[in-house]
């Protein structure tokens, strides 16, 4: 699964710390599956399915 690194609160790009993602703007935190663990964001990150096809990794944006 791929994540869109865009905070669901007000759209700031997230920073990666270990297996967590944090928003530098108001401190929302997300787990590596995209779930919110800390507000003010209230919904999870946008995720995209991936497939590994013959050594190629494909991210579906649909």
């Amino acid at each position: 699964m791929a994540l869109l690194m865009r905070c669901t609160h007000q759209g700031t790009e997230l920073q990666v710390f270990g297996d967590k993602l944090q928003c530098p703007a108001h401190g929302s935190k997300f787990a590596n599956n995209g779930d919110v663990t800390n507000g003010p964001a209230s919904s999870g990150l946008r995720t995209f399915p991936i497939v590994i096809d013959n050594q190629q990794l494909k991210v579906s944006l649909k």
Binding site: A2, V16, N32, V59, L61
Partner: peptide, 23 residues
């Protein structure tokens, strides 16, 4: 999924354009 993979995927996502319908 390990962290390396995760970052890699995010990187792919941000840098590649993949043309698909209904995006």
């Amino acid at each position: 999924m390990s962290l390396k993979q995760l970052q890699f995927l995010i990187f792919i996502l941000l840098s590649n354009g993949i043309v698909l319908a209904q995006i």
